[in-house]
Amino acid sequence: MVWVRYVGGRLLALVLTVLVGSVVVFLVMKAAPGDPAVAALGESARPELVAAFRAKHNLDVPWALQYGRWLSGIARGDFGLSLTVASDRPIAGLIAARLPNTIFIGVMALLIAVILSLIAGTIAALRRGKLADTIATSLAAFGISMPDFWLSYVLILVFALGLGLFPAYGFIAPAQSFTGALYSGFLPALAVSAPLAAVFARTLRTSLLEAGNKDYVVAARSFGFHPAYVFVHWIFRNALIPYITIIGLQIRYILGGVVVIERIFGISGVGSLMVDGAFARDYPVVQACAVVFLVIVLSVNLVVDVVCSLLDPKRAR
């Protein structure tokens, strides 16, 4: 029962945040300079065409009503029509076609980062102060200093143009071929994951060292448990909570990175849709993408919080 209340409360908070966020997004977009009709049809468009355009895109009513219609549309899965990026096509369809690609790359990047950081962070903590630690921490410092879009070009240069191991451009949607998506998504995911892996590995190293210094580790050793057993159940188990927390906090960077990477590798995703919308001043598209990203970040944070409260007996319950 306590559980239902906890998750329910968090879900309610998520919905409220999305509502407030949508108001902010809507108002800020309204404050943007320029008339969308002029942007779409040009300066010299005939007045009746402009009027028809405004009516179709729900721009001829007061702001409050525009917002109300937009929000009730979203609730039904309707984000309105695109102005310029894909003239008059429903945005919901555009997003639905692209979202799986974005999520695929994001999840793949996250998995690569988790695997790399688990290895590097654990080795660094176990061999603290030794050569392996210095190498791992230096690599981590380099990792967070590399802009991910630059790293993608380095990866393209080495692995695609140089060694010819991976495609330099293009992405096979996971719906078409899952293995194709894994193959063509590897370089972009790797580029996004490098700085993340660095941040995760540093966090893991610090929390492992911190947990290793705790009295309960000495107590566990006093009972004569095997060092590997102590490491897994006492040190690693307790370091896991801050590690997973930081993963949740970094979701926003993953998505931010994906936006740029999608453009570079020609991946048709929500990020590249948003950039296209930004160039074409397609306000409804930008607005919709912003809300989608908001919902993703909040949902992931919710999941991470629930996982943490399962792992940490001191939290929630």
């Binding site: 800020v28 926003r252 931010g256 919308g277 001043r281 912003a290 990203f293 908001l294």
Partner: peptide, 23 residues
């Protein structure tokens, strides 16, 4: 709560969004 809301957007999306509005 305002900070939380800003935190809920990917930082790059936030920047991108602002660029669209401001030019």
């Amino acid at each position: 709560r305002c900070a939380d809301l800003l935190f809920a957007f990917p930082s790059f999306v936030l920047a991108l969004f602002l660029m669209v509005v401001l030019g």
